[in-house]
C-alpha cells in the first residue's frame, strides 16, 4: 500500500484525498431524473440518488430495473395471479442502500416497518403488473409489495401480510 513509511501529516493528507476520490465516485452514480409521474420516492441511507438525498422513480425507471415474475394467490384477491416487478433486494442494491429497516408508507398513509433482511433473492418484489396489466390505484397500484406467499409458507404469516403494503409510494431506509 502507499501508506507505508510516510510521516503522519502526509498520511492524513493522503486519507483526505482518498475520501474525496470516493465521494466523487459516489456522486457519479447519480440516477437520471424521472421523466414521468413520480410514483416512488426513496429516502434515508441510499447512496444512489437523483434529487436532494433521495431517489425518485417513475414507472419507466422501475421497469428499467431487472424484472422478476411469479404466480401466487393472495388473501386479498380471488384466485392466482402472476405479478411482475423488481425484487426488493435488486431495487435496494441498485440504490446502494445500507441499514437494517425500511419505513414503507402507502398513498393512504398506511405505514409499516420492513427489516432489510426481508430483501433476499426469491423474496418480495415491488410489483407493478398483475397478470400483465399495470395496476391502477383502485387495484392496489401502482406499486404493491408482494411476497411469494404460495412459494414459501413462511410468508403466510400475519406479520408478512402486514408488510405486504399496497399503493406504496414512499420508502425510507434507516
Amino acid at each position: 500500500m502507499t501508506l507505508t513509511l510516510r510521516p503522519p501529516s502526509t498520511m492524513a493528507a493522503m486519507l483526505l484525498l482518498t475520501l474525496a476520490f470516493f465521494a466523487t465516485t459516489a456522486l457519479s452514480e447519480t440516477l437520471k431524473a424521472p421523466e414521468g409521474e413520480v410514483i416512488l420516492t426513496v429516502t434515508g441511507n441510499v447512496h444512489v440518488t437523483n434529487a436532494m438525498d433521495k431517489a425518485e422513480f417513475d414507472l419507466e425507471m422501475l421497469e428499467a430495473l431487472p424484472a422478476t415474475e411469479f404466480t401466487t394467490s393472495t388473501i386479498w384477491t380471488a384466485g392466482e395471479q402472476t405479478y411482475t416487478g423488481v425484487e426488493l433486494k435488486t431495487f435496494l442494491d441498485s440504490l446502494e442502500a445500507t441499514g437494517t429497516m425500511i419505513d414503507a408508507t402507502a398513498i393512504n398513509d398506511y405505514s409499516v416497518e420492513i427489516p432489510i433482511s426481508d430483501a433476499v433473492e426469491g423474496g418480495p418484489i415491488l410489483a407493478y403488473k398483475s397478470d400483465g396489466a399495470y395496476m391502477s390505484r383502485r387495484d392496489k397500484g401502482p406499486i404493491w409489495l408482494i411476497y411469494p406467499y404460495d412459494q414459501n409458507a413462511d410468508y403466510r404469516s400475519e406479520t408478512i401480510y402486514s408488510r405486504s403494503i399496497w399503493q406504496l409510494d414512499r420508502l425510507n431506509v434507516k
Binding site: A78, N108, R137, R138, D139
Partner: peptide
C-alpha cells in the same frame, strides 16, 4: 379522485377478503 381510488381499493379488498 385519489381518496375515491383509495376507498374503492379498500372496498375491493374487503370484497376479496369477504369472498375468501
Amino acid at each position: 379522485r385519489k381518496q375515491f381510488d383509495i376507498f374503492y381499493s379498500r372496498v375491493k379488498t374487503l370484497e376479496g377478503s369477504t369472498q375468501t
